[in-house]
């Protein structure tokens, strides 16, 4: 039960927000995330925002995996 898509909040009116991804806009309910703001990146599942996406986390994760790869590469380069 897990198709959820990253989208960006473009408008908030009353108890519905408008979220957008790939040029497609759709109305979403945000009862699970009442404190969302415009331009927040969120996860949308079946018309509902289920979480706010932490962009800072995403960058950190990318850096750790880049390091992970760099270390591996160095190990391979070392003479056997």
């Amino acid at each position: 039960m897990c198709l959820a898509i990253p989208m960006t909040i473009t408008k908030i009116d009353g108890n519905y927000a408008i979220a957008m991804a790939n040029g497609v806009e759709t109305q979403v309910n945000f009862a699970m995330m009442p404190d969302i703001k415009i331009n927040d990146k969120v996860l949308v599942h079946a018309g509902f925002i289920i979480e706010k996406l932490d962009e800072e986390q995403a960058r950190e994760i990318e850096e750790t995996w880049a390091e992970y790869y760099a270390i591996l590469e160095k190990e391979e380069v070392k003479p056997a």
């Binding site: 009862a31 699970m32 995330m33 009442p34 979480e51 996406l53 932490d54 962009e55 994760i61």
Partner: peptide
């Protein structure tokens, strides 16, 4: 937790309460 962009330690408290 390898999905920290979306998953918190305690999840989504609002959703759990709902």
């Amino acid at each position: 937790n390898e999905y920290k962009t979306a998953v918190r330690e305690k999840g989504n408290p609002n959703a759990l309460k709902i």
